[in-house]
């Protein structure tokens, strides 16, 4: 018995071949690729499946300024074969792209006059598009709390320094292992929450980093009185197809590639607490 299904003209499982516009090293193990996008729409917090030719594709968040519609900006940490293969790409090379996929960060609505962004490590990457937008909204009071392993791992430091001079933006940096030149905070990002001026009724909080860090940060924010519905986290799972077909990224009933990676904390809090779910 046959089915009546219309297939779209472009199979979302088939990648596009796109040209790399530039390669930039950010830190010793993090680099940024700018890739021509062909003007495809995307939302802050969404991800693409990116692969070097002959290598497996991997999910990578989009980290660029949403104002740049001609390119995808992907900031990638070298942790395995696939990301290392991407690190060899240079301007003019071809790269395989599928996407964008997933549900991104919520739009900061008018009722929220305060935006709190808490990120750790490369967790800052998917939050950059939102921060670009926030930097252009003088009425939105934005606080970024950003934790890194050491001062040399701090990403986008020039951009962050520029933003910290904006009247509406506060940037609070912290590292686990400072060097002698470090003049910011030491310790985990959670340490900076009790002393950040947070109005629980007007704040929307976006968190991205290692899952443990997100769990503890979210709890710290709840202690400050923020509603779990105003806290969002971005989950990392093994996304492969991007369409809820392959099953790899499941978190109980959620296909993280489809209903995530960004979730309101009240929807995901319980699932984050269960080991190995």
């Amino acid at each position: 018995m046959a089915t009546a299904l219309k297939l779209s003209t472009h199979d979302p499982m088939t990648p596009r071949i796109c040209e790399v516009r530039s390669f930039r090293r950010e830190t010793v193990d993090v680099f940024t690729l700018e890739i021509e996008s062909g003007g495809i729409d995307w939302q802050p917090g969404q991800f693409n499946m990116v692969g070097a030719i002959g290598s497996r594709e991997i999910p990578i968040s989009i980290s660029g300024d949403p104002a740049r519609t001609d390119i995808w900006t992907h900031t990638i940490r070298e942790v395995g074969n696939c990301s290392r293969a991407l690190a060899h790409l240079r301007a003019g090379d071809s790269v395989l792209m599928r996407g964008p996929f997933g549900v991104g960060w919520p739009e900061v609505e008018a009722e929220h006059s305060d935006l709190l962004v808490v990120s750790g490590g490369v967790g800052l990457v998917p939050l950059m598009p939102t921060l670009y937008l926030a930097s252009r909204r003088p009425a939105l009071k934005t606080t970024l709390i950003y934790g890194s392993r050491s001062p040399c791992d701090v990403l986008f430091s020039h951009r962050l320094a520029e933003w910290s001079s904006y009247p509406n933006m506060t940037v609070r940096l912290t590292v686990d292992h400072p060097d002698t030149d470090w003049h910011h905070n030491v310790g985990l990002v959670t340490r900076l929450i009790p002393t950040s001026p947070i109005n629980p009724f007007t704040t929307i909080a976006l968190i991205c980093g290692p899952e443990v860090m997100m769990r503890f940060t979210a709890r710290e924010l709840l202690r400050e009185g923020i509603s779990p519905r105003s806290i969002y986290v971005s989950m990392e799972r093994n996304m492969k197809c991007g369409m809820g077909l392959c099953g790899h990224c499941q978190l109980r009933g959620e296909f993280v590639c489809l209903s995530g990676p960004v979730y309101p904390y009240d929807r995901i809090a319980r699932l984050m607490e269960i080991p190995e779910l």
Partner: peptide, 19 residues
């Protein structure tokens, strides 16, 4: 509690495992 939690989590070297 806050300081101890932060210290314990720092021990995890959350952003680390650099090869």
């Amino acid at each position: 509690q806050n300081r101890l939690q932060s210290t314990i989590l720092q021990l995890l070297d959350l952003y680390g495992d650099r090869s």
